[in-house]
Amino acid sequence: TTQFTVHSPEQAEQWKEYAKQKGLEVHVQKKNGTWHVTIH
């Protein structure tokens, strides 16, 4: 599991796309103005 924080919805979307291409599961949670992205 990879977990990191991004600071814009655009970055979060890019990671979603990346994960989809790799066939991975991605979870994005918005918290205090940042987005926590978890890739399984």
Rank of each mutant, 00 (worst) to 15 (best):
residue 1 T to F: 14
residue 1 T to S: 11
residue 1 T to Q: 09
residue 1 T to W: 14
residue 1 T to Y: 14
residue 1 T to M: 12
residue 1 T to V: 13
residue 1 T to I: 13
residue 2 T to K: 13
residue 3 Q to V: 12
residue 3 Q to P: 03
residue 3 Q to R: 13
residue 3 Q to K: 11
residue 4 F to L: 09
residue 4 F to Y: 06
residue 4 F to G: 03
residue 4 F to C: 12
residue 5 T to H: 12
residue 6 V to S: 03
residue 6 V to N: 01
residue 7 H to T: 13
residue 8 S to E: 05
residue 8 S to R: 03
residue 8 S to A: 04
residue 9 P to T: 09
residue 9 P to L: 15
residue 10 E to K: 06
residue 11 Q to R: 06
residue 11 Q to L: 13
residue 11 Q to D: 11
residue 11 Q to E: 15
residue 11 Q to G: 05
residue 11 Q to N: 04
residue 12 A to K: 02
residue 12 A to Q: 02
residue 13 E to A: 10
residue 13 E to S: 06
residue 14 Q to I: 12
residue 15 W to I: 10
residue 16 K to Y: 12
residue 17 E to W: 07
residue 17 E to S: 06
residue 17 E to H: 06
residue 17 E to T: 07
residue 18 Y to W: 15
residue 18 Y to T: 03
residue 18 Y to I: 06
residue 18 Y to L: 06
residue 18 Y to N: 03
residue 18 Y to V: 04
residue 19 A to G: 13
residue 19 A to N: 01
residue 19 A to L: 07
residue 20 K to Y: 08
residue 21 Q to Y: 08
residue 21 Q to S: 13
residue 22 K to S: 09
residue 22 K to F: 12
residue 22 K to T: 08
residue 22 K to G: 05
residue 23 G to R: 04
residue 23 G to Q: 04
residue 23 G to K: 05
residue 23 G to W: 02
residue 23 G to N: 07
residue 23 G to L: 03
residue 24 L to N: 02
residue 24 L to S: 02
residue 25 E to S: 11
residue 26 V to F: 12
residue 26 V to P: 01
residue 26 V to A: 07
residue 26 V to D: 00
residue 27 H to I: 11
residue 27 H to S: 10
residue 28 V to F: 08
residue 28 V to Y: 03
residue 29 Q to K: 10
residue 30 K to A: 11
residue 30 K to C: 10
residue 30 K to L: 14
residue 30 K to E: 15
residue 31 K to W: 08
residue 31 K to H: 11
residue 31 K to R: 12
residue 31 K to M: 13
residue 31 K to A: 08
residue 31 K to P: 00
residue 32 N to Y: 05
residue 32 N to D: 12
residue 33 G to S: 04
residue 33 G to R: 04
residue 34 T to E: 14
residue 34 T to M: 14
residue 36 H to L: 15
residue 36 H to Y: 15
residue 36 H to A: 06
residue 37 V to D: 00
residue 37 V to Y: 01
residue 37 V to G: 01
residue 38 T to A: 05
residue 38 T to F: 07
residue 39 I to V: 06
residue 39 I to M: 06
residue 39 I to W: 02
residue 40 H to E: 09
residue 40 H to C: 11
